[in-house]
Design a protein around this nucleic acid. Structure first.
Lengths: 202, 202, 202, 202
DNA sequence: CATGAATGAGGGTTCATTCAT
DNA sequence: GATGAATGAACCCTCATTCAT
């Protein structure tokens, strides 16, 4: 019964490991990669500095893992939307929501990914960079489709639009939870989508 | 008379000192405050590590100075615009241009200010933070005025709008010079203003 | 009856334990005592780091055991030869063979003993050092006997001779198996003995 | 006046640097590379641990430098001898003296080179290894010449001879200064050469 | 002003060792 | 016996900073 073997796959100390990654994400997000001490991370999990290396080979590897989880399913989510049959307007709305939702679910991961990925070791940085560019390209394409379907103005600079959306969404990570009253992610996404759509309607 | 205030500022051995501040801004922007070594800064000016301390009392002070120049006249520029007699539409356009112009003139300073000000010593950080909040408030107010004058839709969340504008402008610092072909700052500002205005028109 | 002595030695769970000691000897020989990690030793036996401590109280104790087996029966072998009735020439040949034979049988143990015994804890080091000096003394005495029997030149410095033989034999451990074609230990011993004897013949 | 420029070549703080290298050599020789703490080295020069890195980029680099000085002019000395017009007998004597002389002049360097070069970083280790093999080859060749000139027995294994000489000489580093009364290097070299020559005379 | 030299605190990391399971 | 997990001391190294020259 292979399914049994799969089901038996021991998640083991993944619980503790996840706690460590969580702590790393939180500390990286708060102090930046180089400003974060491993002792601080360890302290948040209630273990000693050296014990971290039972879970990670290095601080860099911890950053890599955090960033990987941070970049998460941004891309797949967007591609699902792009391939769907929704009209362009709804696609854009969905794309914004797709980008904003992680803000509430794993803010430290995404914040770290956005602001600290430059400190990744070369290999990971390039790998992550490729994903980012692919994401930008997919969003650019989504805008282009909207134009082709005459849903959006034809004089738009598609790439500029994509960067604008990404930039505005990323900025939300900066202040969400601290400012702008107590807006929900859905509300913010609605407002943003509405304004963007009005701004670029054909 | 603002020129008097400027002239009163003691300029002394500014030439060399400015070179040092420039180097610090560049290195902070590239590697982050904690990722930047004083040796690297010194190297870019062609002096040795220890010699830096003829220009700065500490690395923190260097960051403070860079951030101060980074925040620069964002606020005064915006207040000038707010107090002018332009119609709301033009004010918004002017505000965006005011925010974007430094991207071409002193990108390292602004980039450092945006991404590294969290590492300032407590006093400077709070002082700078106050300026930021004041800037946000001024921009929020500018939007509110537009609504009062029936130039913008009345269902806008003013603060959200201000944060959106700021976020989108700041994002430009991330990619300007590397992506989006060879757009000029003015072109970007035009496109952004046009879209924003269409999106929020009454 | 030496076989009785051997049989009396408590053998217990020797099989696995010997495997562990072997691994320790190999790793110590290759990386040196301080360059060898317990994890590496454990890995070679297929167990985990912590499990080593069912076989040893400490890494130092492992080194002690390896060195003890390394020094092995050098001394008793040499004393047997010294007390035999062979002529001096043959005694020297036998002594050289006695010293070289372990090179093929347990090279890692001897190599470790020769190069790493300085890192033994004080007690063991002194104990082992005493054996070494006794060995040197026995060999020195063997040369002295040869002179007394007019088999060797009378102007020899006996201690120097002993050290020379030991040094040359120990050096074999350095290159045996890697260089000097595919000479057998017996061939090397023959060549060495022949030359030494010609060099010191009366 | 180029000679003036050369003479002016500032030896600078080479004096202090040499003291540091000396200390490193001594500590490496006594405790082995991995058994030697940088703090111990620093302590012997009277500076703090971190200050070492003003003179070295890393502990490995210190080992490299020590080994380089350790291997010193063994090779060039031997090549000079080989190319000279001395008879084979004298050449061998000179070669032995050439190998032994450093024992009195820089024992820590040579001891470290002999016993610790395995811990060099890959690049240096291979480079040094090449020198060693060249040295062995040169000595082997010197023996072969002696045979060709009918000065040595024709049934000698030349490589084995070379390794024997090297091994015996290197062994001197082990005990010189501690054992064998108060023999001078010259005396030891004489005794060794005499015996070797008798042992291999045609 | 600038430097060579040094510092000392702290950094990330390794590793022999322990212990409940 | 063996393991996963944790420890704490020590390690090598970096770096902002100081200071006599």
């Amino acid at each position: 019964m292979p399914s049994a073997a799969l089901a038996a796959k021991p998640t083991k100390y993944d619980a503790r490991r996840d706690a460590v990654v969580d702590a790393a994400a939180a500390v990286f997000a708060e102090f930046g990669y180089h400003g974060a001490g491993t002792g601080l991370i360890a302290g948040r999990v209630g273990i000693r500095q050296g014990s971290l290396y039972y879970y990670f080979a290095s601080k860099e590897e911890a950053l890599s893992e955090v960033c990987l989880r941070g970049v998460g399913d941004f891309l797949t989510g967007l591609e699902d939307i792009a391939q769907s049959t929704m009209p362009a307007n709804e696609k854009l709305h969905a794309a914004i929501l797709n980008h904003l939702r992680p803000v509430a679910e794993r803010p430290d991961y995404v914040r770290t990914f956005i602001t600290q990925r430059q400190h990744l070791p070369d290999a990971s940085r390039r790998s992550v960079g490729r994903q980012v560019r692919q994401y930008e390209k997919a969003l650019t394409e989504l805008v282009r489709q909207g134009i082709a379907q005459s849903a959006f103005r034809s004089d738009l600079d598609c790439e500029l639009m994509a960067l604008a959306i990404i930039g505005e969404c990323n900025a939300v990570f900066t202040w969400y939870g601290k400012r702008a009253k107590a807006l929900s992610i859905a509300q913010i996404a609605d407002a943003m989508a509405t304004r963007f759509l009005k701004g670029i309607a054909a």
